[in-house]
Amino acid sequence: MPSKEKGGMDHITSTGASPDSTAALLRELVAHLRQNRTQLREEWARRITEAQLLVAMTKEEIFAEATSVYDNYVEVLETGSVEALQAYARNLSERIIPRGVETHEVLGIVLLLRDVLARSLFKKYQADFALLNRVLDAYEPAANRIANTVGVSFVQERERTIRQQQEAIRELSTPVLQVRERLLILPIIGVIDSQRARQLTEQLLRGIRTNRAKVVVMDITGVPSVDSTVANHLVLTVAAARLLGATVIMTGVSAEIAQTLVTIGVDLGKMNTVGDLQGGIEEAERLLGYKVISTEGGAAAQVTTQA
């Protein structure tokens, strides 16, 4: 049985040169880059500033990061393993994403380094055209792989950040509120996609448990419409809440949503629905045995528990 269906990292492939000579050339290349580290690094940092990349960072910061990237870069050429670079790129992304560094800047600096190094190789080997060709054949796949690794790490890190933020926003968008002891309300506003529906269910069921709720009023006045998957999900949530011993009252069901519910075969007679949120809360209070009475001469209502 396959344990991996697809994917995996790409590998360095070289054309023209045999593997042995590629390795030898890469060794020579690495030695060259080590020897000229100071000068090439400075050249790269200068070009970064010139191209107005990483504008959110100071000159010193750029130089420090450039040094790390440079050393990692040379290491990849030497060992052929991108793991350390990948870890560094992820760490770097984590630090610079909050400062507003954009994808094009990250790709830009890596491509600049590639360019700086290629120019220095040209200079060194220009006398022997055949050798230069072979050096570039050895260098380019490795350089491409490095650019790819850094770019992908950055984008992945950004996606991760975005997902985290989405998660946080979603959680905030569906508050489970306790209005009285044992009574929760869940006002849902906006479009419910299947991921939000799933989160809503988890929050509600957990809320029932932590608040020991007996009745939940789920108000969907602010939900424009739902597709049949989400409608079905809502119905399942109501059923699951019952398994925890809580009754769900749905309020604000629009004609359109009612139609969807009927279409997927929900028996609305079996669902506890009340026209609006206020009516829903009143019904919930009745179920819980609360009686709301108006105090004499005052507008404020007072809540008492029966028996």
């Binding site: 049985m1 396959p2 344990s3 991996k4 269906e5 697809k6 994917g7 992945q156």
Partner: peptide
């Protein structure tokens, strides 16, 4: 019963 970890792109 066989339980197998699988991977597809990421």
């Amino acid at each position: 019963l066989a339980l197998t970890p699988i991977q597809q792109s990421h």
